[in-house]
Design a protein around this nucleic acid. Structure first.
Lengths: 227, 227
DNA sequence: GTCTATAGTGGGATAGAC
DNA sequence: GTCTATCCCACTATAGAC
């Protein structure tokens, strides 16, 4: 759910115009939803011509980037607070996943409207797309910090893969969140609250011989699929 | 990826018109892909007016139903062959999941184009939507047969939930498949080939105390989320 | 390089006559 | 149930002002 920022604008004036357009888009998206916000209305709200809006943004969906960027920046900031004091793995993971749900809550209603754009495999907005690589790496880095500075003792092979696996878990939570119609996304919070101890338990039991076989299989699986 | 058929038409004439439109849509979707097929072209190909096409189908995405129905019927038929002779759990599961990949292979390229419509939470095409309930149940029933007539010995609680969990696994495979750009969906087949023994191993190890704790947590999780 | 104004195309969706 | 006519809007094109 995160992507690359647009290339830096040349002049400060251009930067201001660009900001005006993204701001207008964010306001209108929240006011009327994605589908009912027209490019004309965005241009009007920003006080620029329609053509100018298209000069800065290739299309309507490019404006979704602004939302992604905002969420990602807030998530990274929130991560600081969470990861600074806590050393136990479970609370660290719960803090990071929960922070995302908190941050994204205001956008839940209209996020579903443009989720389909990100879902299209060929879309640059897909979290798996090359365009999203930098933001994806940044997000994975947060999960790497969750693992590395925690009290978890793991086999090196698993320790290497775990951050990416946790990011995949995060994507799963996002998917669930999009479909979650419960008030305040209660069910997503419950999912997080229950999934974290489960992951913690699984991760800690990897030293047992029985479990280790399963874990090795899983690592082989993800390794094979990455090729 | 499956949904409910449209309500039965009244007259035979209407039924014929409807068929003509769905046929035209299927032909053009495969020829040019979903996005490049216009409703006008579909109406032309079917020999009806644009307005008439909309009289029968609420929108372009409603025509995707025809594709879903086709795949589901083929999958159910293929399941017969797979489940008839085999009694071991792993080959049964592998057979069912593999059959879906085989059947869907011809549609892979253009399936990605309209996947986004199914991904939208409010869409009736979503596999989790109420509209999809009958087809979803039919699909889960296939996985129930995979479990019930197999050699698996399981705790009753798990045995009750496993079919739905396997259907979720199936949805995961579908999701992976949509994003899989490898030739012949090689990676999806590899995912299936490696995930099945893993699931088999996990299911069979549920008698061990360590694993049982994890399984109980998982069952509690899905139970809590269903509410 | 930044921006406006205007005109136009294409295609999804609808209204209303028959 | 079927058509024709129309609307709406994303998006493009262009010509030119600063």
């Amino acid at each position: 759910m995160t992507t690359v920022p647009e290339p830096a604008a040349r002049s400060p004036k251009a930067e201001q115009t660009r900001r005006g357009i993204t701001n207008a888009a964010m306001v209108l998206f929240r006011e009327r939803g994605y589908d009912k916000t027209t490019m004309r209305a965005i241009a009007d709200e920003a006080g620029v011509s329609l053509g100018n809006a298209y000069y800065y943004f290739g299309g309507k969906e490019h404006l979704i980037q602004a939302f992604y960027d905002q969420v990602q920046v807030e998530h990274a900031a929130a991560a600081e607070g969470v990861l600074a004091g806590e050393k136990s793995f479970a609370p660290r993971l719960h803090g990071l996943l929960g922070a995302w749900v908190d941050i994204s809550a205001p956008y839940h209603e209209f996020a579903g409207q443009f989720f389909k754009n990100a879902a299209e495999p060929t879309s640059p907005l897909s979290p798996f797309s090359p365009d999203s690589a930098p933001a994806r790496e940044a997000s994975i880095a947060l999960f790497r910090r969750v693992v590395e500075d925690s009290d978890l003792k793991l086999a090196p092979a698993l320790r290497r893969e775990l951050p990416e696996l946790l990011w995949l878990l995060h994507m799963g939570v996002v998917l669930f969140w999009v479909y979650d119609a419960s008030p305040g996304q209660r069910r997503t919070r419950e999912l997080v609250a229950r999934a974290v101890p489960l992951v913690d338990r699984l991760a800690r039991s990897t030293r047992l011989p029985v479990v280790r076989g399963v874990v090795d299989d899983m690592l082989e699986l993800v390794g094979a699929l990455r090729t």
